[in-house]
């Protein structure tokens, strides 16, 4: 039987080739893909997140691990779907209207994908209407917004208001982040959560949908 520990190590080290090869071997041996995910892949990404938060890893290491995770995940996703398994939740993510900064948003998107979420990335300069419409169409459980400029932060409040006006807030949680954003601001505008970094954003998303 395939030794699955290398799958954990490969994701931790960002070795996409080994991660995929190990998953392929495991699937040939009919190992339960849910077991691969729950026991090796997600724990590896959790460890990547821990190392990032304790400054042992930098973003490039985090991203390379997220890519290894994604490559492995693509192999098992059809099998998981066949078994009726679903992602933890769907997240609609974007940088708010008027703001073009997307580095932080991209990190959060990568970490959420690596953490088992389905991510719909609306990119940058996203209007409140786009967030609301996409969340409705896709049946998303979370809207995640980023802003880097104090002058674009009001776009977050506008989106929260739009979600409320659309009667969606009981179905969709709203999380926000970005350099000038604070928990106090999240509380002020009625967002459901604030995260300081990409790794903590995964934990927050899990909490918001009751997956942790």
């Amino acid at each position: 039987m395939t030794d699955l520990q290398p799958l954990y190590e490969a994701i931790l080290e960002g070795d996409a080739a080994t991660a995929k090869a190990t998953v392929q071997e495991a699937l040939i041996e009919s190992i339960d893909p849910q077991e691969l995910l729950d026991k090796f892949m997600i724990p590896a990404m959790d460890e990547v997140g821990r190392r990032f938060e304790t400054n042992e890893y930098f973003v490039p290491e985090l991203l390379i691990s997220a890519r290894a995770m994604k490559g492995a995940l693509e192999l098992i996703r059809p099998k998981l779907a066949d078994k009726g398994a679903k992602p933890i939740a769907k997240v609609v993510i974007g940088t708010v209207k008027g703001d073009l900064h997307d580095i932080g948003k991209n990190l959060v998107a990568a970490m959420l994908e690596g953490g088992g979420f389905e991510v719909i990335d609306l990119k940058v300069d996203v209007s409140p209407e786009q967030f609301v419409q996409t969340a409705k169409e896709q049946g998303a459980q979370i809207i995640a917004m980023s802003a880097l400029l104090t002058t674009t932060m009001p776009g977050m409040k506008a989106t929260v208001d739009a979600v409320n006006n659309a009667g969606l807030h009981d179905k969709v949680k709203i999380m926000i982040g970005g350099a000038p954003v604070t928990q106090r601001y999240a509380d002020e505008i009625g967002a459901d959560g604030f995260s300081e970094n990409a790794s903590a954003a995964v934990r927050l998303a899990r909490q918001l949908v009751g997956a942790e």
């Binding site: 930098f58 973003v59 991203l63 390379i64 997307d102």
Partner: peptide, 9 residues
């Protein structure tokens, strides 16, 4: 450049 920074490439 943004890609380069993210990957330290």
């Amino acid at each position: 450049n943004d890609i380069a920074l993210m990957d330290a490439d």
